[in-house]
Computed example of a mutant assay.
Amino acid sequence: MSTPGGAPIHKDQLKAKYIGTGDADMTKYEWVTNMHRDTLASHVGHYDQLSYYAVAQNESIGRVKKEFIEKMLQPCNKPPVGKTVAGDGI
C-alpha cells in the first residue's frame, strides 16, 4: 500500500491510522468489539440508515442515534475474565 505520492506506508503507520485493523495478538473479543463499533458508527453516520432504524423501532431519529452512540461504549457486554489467547474460541 502506498500514499497518493507513491511513498509506501509502513504497517505500524497503517495500524495507528486505522485502529480496528488488528494483529496476530488480537483476541476474538477485541475483533468482534471493533466490528460492532464500526457497524454502529456507520449507522450513525449514514442518515438514511439511521432513519430506517428509527422508523422500524418507532422511535425518534435522535433517540436511536443516542442509543447507538451509547452502545458503542461496550457493544459486546463485558470483556472475558482472565488472560486469553487469540483464536481460543471465546
Rank of each mutant, 00 (worst) to 15 (best):
Y53G: 04
V85T: 12
N34Y: 12
S60C: 02
M35H: 07
R37Q: 15
A24C: 00
I19F: 06
Y52E: 14
A16F: 03
N77T: 06
T3A: 04
G87M: 06
K71L: 13
T39M: 14
P4N: 02
K78R: 08
H36Y: 11
I19M: 03
K71M: 10
V85Q: 05
V81Q: 01
M1L: 04
V64P: 01
Y18F: 13
D12G: 00
I19S: 10
H43V: 15
A7W: 02
A24I: 10
I9P: 00
T21N: 02
G82M: 01
V32I: 14
T21G: 00
H43G: 06
E70L: 13
S42T: 15
F68G: 00
H10F: 02
D48I: 13
F68C: 12
L40R: 12
K83G: 03
G87K: 05
H43E: 12
V55L: 09
E30N: 08
I90Q: 06
P8M: 04
M26F: 03
I19P: 05
Q57N: 11
A16S: 08
K71C: 05
E67R: 12
Q57F: 10
A54I: 11
K71I: 01
K15S: 09
W31G: 05
G22V: 08
M35F: 08
G5M: 06
R37A: 03
E30H: 07
E67H: 07
I61D: 05
A7H: 04
G82I: 00
D23Q: 05
T33Y: 03
A41K: 15
S42Y: 14
A24W: 04
V55S: 09
G82V: 00
M35L: 15
H43T: 15
H46I: 15
G6H: 04
E67D: 13
V64S: 00
I90V: 07
I19L: 09
G45V: 12
K83N: 05
T33S: 11
G82L: 01
Y29S: 03
K28S: 09
P79L: 01
Y29H: 10
H46C: 11
L50H: 01
P8D: 07
V32Y: 07
I69F: 01
Q49V: 13
G89N: 09
S2H: 02
I9Y: 01
T39F: 13
I61P: 00
E67I: 13
A54P: 07
I9D: 00
T39V: 14
E59S: 12
L73S: 10
K15W: 02
D38C: 09
G6D: 06
V32N: 06
Y47C: 05
K11G: 00
T27L: 11
H46M: 11
V44F: 02
L40I: 15
L14S: 05
D12H: 02
R63C: 01
H46Q: 14
T21E: 06
G87N: 05
Y18W: 09
G6S: 05
I90N: 03
M35D: 10
P79I: 03
Y52L: 12
T84N: 00
I19T: 11
K17G: 03
N58D: 12
I90R: 06
R37M: 13
D25R: 08
G87D: 04
G6N: 06
S60K: 09
V85W: 02
E67Q: 12
K78F: 03
T27K: 04
T27F: 03
D25F: 04
D48T: 15
H43N: 10
P75S: 07
S2C: 01
C76D: 06
A41V: 09
Q74K: 12
A16Q: 09
Q57D: 10
K83V: 06
